[in-house]
């Protein structure tokens, strides 16, 4: 049986798709057959981040409606042959998704894949609800600022009450925190919430801190998941996240400011 991971946040623009692409690639690179599904029907982005936008023929909705089979719709990643992408439809909206349809597709994928990563749309409406409904694990992507934290908190409430696991009274979804766009300098100057501030409200298992990084935008623009940029801090941070998710113990990085050492040396604050 596959493990179904939902990457969710409530708020938009916090890095759900970047995270989905990175961790799906990370899992595949470590030898696990992985598929990443774009649930953002009508606002398709994952194909761009994965650099496969020119190879999309059939999409998730076609499969749900029986207009194409899974093999026709799945796109094999050009960098890793264990990774597949199931793109969203750009011409439809979220109403085209149905609980049974999504369930059917996930079940079929479960037979073949080890991990299924669901890239949730923003919001708490149908698309987001269906993306998380069948999940086993949830990666809650949060930026260190109040509105993102509150939306994540709301999403956690929905995960705990409206998922299949909650409705069937099964073991609840495992929730993990991913703090993205973290900038230690701005935390220090009080412009951003610190990890402790966020954890005081969310108190979740921290899977990793992804520092604010130029490499993320560069990776998105070139359609290569940032995790493949092994020299970048964000790429390394995502590699840590995948390792920790798979059970490895790695110390958390990128919490402290890089300039901290020199600042101490030269008597800054």
């Amino acid at each position: 049986m596959a493990r179904i991971i939902v990457v969710t946040s409530g708020k938009g623009g916090v890095g759900k798709t970047t995270t989905s692409a990175a961790i799906a690639m990370g899992l595949a690179k470590r030898g696990h057959k992985t598929v990443v599904i774009d649930f953002d029907v009508g606002l398709r982005n994952l194909d761009l981040i994965m650099g496969c936008e020119r190879r999309v023929v059939y999409d998730f909705i076609n499969v749900i409606n029986g207009e194409a089979n899974l093999n026709q719709a799945l796109i094999r990643d050009k960098n890793c042959n264990l990774l597949y992408i199931l793109p969203a439809s750009q011409t439809r909206d979220k109403d085209a998704l149905s609980l049974e349809g999504v369930g059917r597709v996930l079940e079929e994928l479960s037979k073949d894949f080890k991990y299924i990563v669901c890239d949730s749309p923003a919001g708490i409406e149908k698309g987001a609800n269906l993306a998380m409904y069948y999940a086993d694990d949830a990666f809650v992507v949060t930026n260190p600022e109040v509105s993102s934290v509150r939306d994540s908190d709301r999403m956690l409430g929905i995960l705990a009450s409206k998922s299949r696991r909650a409705e069937l009274g099964m073991e609840p979804i495992k929730e993990y925190l991913l703090l993205t766009r973290y900038d230690p300098d701005r935390v220090e100057s009080g412009e951003m919430l610190s990890l402790d501030d966020v954890q005081e409200i969310l108190s979740l298992h921290l899977l990793g801190i992804i520092p604010e990084s130029k490499s993320v935008l560069n990776a998105s623009n070139s359609g290569i998941p940032v995790i493949l940029d092994e020299k970048s801090d964000a790429g390394q941070a995502y590699a840590d996240v995948v390792a920790r998710y798979l059970g490895e113990k790695r110390p958390h990085r990128f919490i402290e400011s890089k300039k901290g050492f020199f600042r101490k040396l030269f008597g800054g604050k």
Binding site: R150, D153, R154, I201
Partner: peptide
């Protein structure tokens, strides 16, 4: 969590945090 509502007819004992909202 934020957005959750709990109503009970008797006493309510909560061991965890109650979030804003």
């Amino acid at each position: 969590r934020s957005g959750q509502r709990i109503y009970v007819s008797g006493d309510l004992i909560i061991l965890t945090q109650v979030s804003a909202g």
